[in-house]
Simulated assay, not measured.
Amino acid sequence: MALVLVIDDEPGMRRTMHRFLKDAGHTVLEAPSGSIGLRLFEEAAPDLVILDLFMPEKEGIQTMREMREIRPDAKIIAISGGGRYGLNLLDGLEQLGATDTLAKPFGKDAFLSSVERAIESAGK
């Protein structure tokens, strides 16, 4: 299975995604911010990153750009609930480097389907 890095500032969302991924047989690393996530990304070289767009300190888009500079072939699923403005910023994120996008709230099946597609596209 895959090593997956989950970057989200909401502890409940991280726990939920961790449980879904672990139940599916994946190894999971967690980060509460883009800065910590970027450090783990460099240290652990995960097979897949699940990245929230709206976070304090360092937003997801900035984090994704920096990850792409380090590893252009990284697999990244961008997730968002729309943030404080209720905007759908997921449209067009593939052009900025997202492998896939997923709107919050999402169910286990939709989440794991997106994860499996991204992992398969990495050849894992």
Rank of each mutant, 00 (worst) to 15 (best):
D91S: 12
A74R: 05
T99G: 05
S121G: 13
L112I: 06
F106V: 05
L112Q: 07
E57C: 04
R84L: 13
S80F: 03
A122I: 00
P72M: 06
Y85R: 15
L112N: 08
Y85T: 11
T99I: 00
G107R: 14
D73G: 12
R71C: 07
S113E: 13
E57M: 08
L102V: 03
S113A: 14
I61H: 04
F111H: 06
E120F: 09
A103T: 07
F111R: 07
G123E: 10
R65L: 12
Q62K: 13
E66M: 13
K104W: 06
I61V: 15
A98P: 06
F106W: 09
L102M: 09
R117G: 04
I119C: 08
S121P: 03
P72A: 14
S114R: 15
S80V: 02
Y85G: 12
D109T: 15
A110M: 13
A118W: 08
K58P: 00
P105R: 02
E69N: 13
M67Q: 07
A110N: 12
I77S: 06
A98E: 00
I70C: 05
A98L: 01
I61G: 04
R84V: 12
A78E: 02
E66Y: 02
F106Y: 15
K124L: 14
S114N: 11
L96C: 07
M67P: 05
M64G: 07
R68L: 12
K58W: 04
G60I: 02
G123V: 00
R84F: 10
K75F: 03
V115K: 13
E116P: 04
N88M: 05
A118N: 04
R65H: 14
E57K: 12
A110H: 11
T63R: 10
F111K: 09
S80R: 02
D73M: 10
A110W: 01
L96M: 09
Q62L: 07
P105V: 08
A98T: 00
E59Y: 02
I79H: 03
P56K: 11
G97E: 00
T101A: 09
I61K: 13
Q62V: 07
S113K: 14
R68F: 00
G83S: 09
R68E: 01
S121L: 11
I61P: 06
G82K: 01
K104R: 11
S114E: 08
S121V: 01
A118K: 05
I119M: 10
S80I: 02
I61F: 05
E120C: 08
E120M: 11
D73A: 15
V115N: 10
N88Q: 08
K104C: 06
L102C: 06
K124V: 10
S114P: 00
I61R: 15
I76P: 08
G82N: 08
A78G: 07
D109L: 13
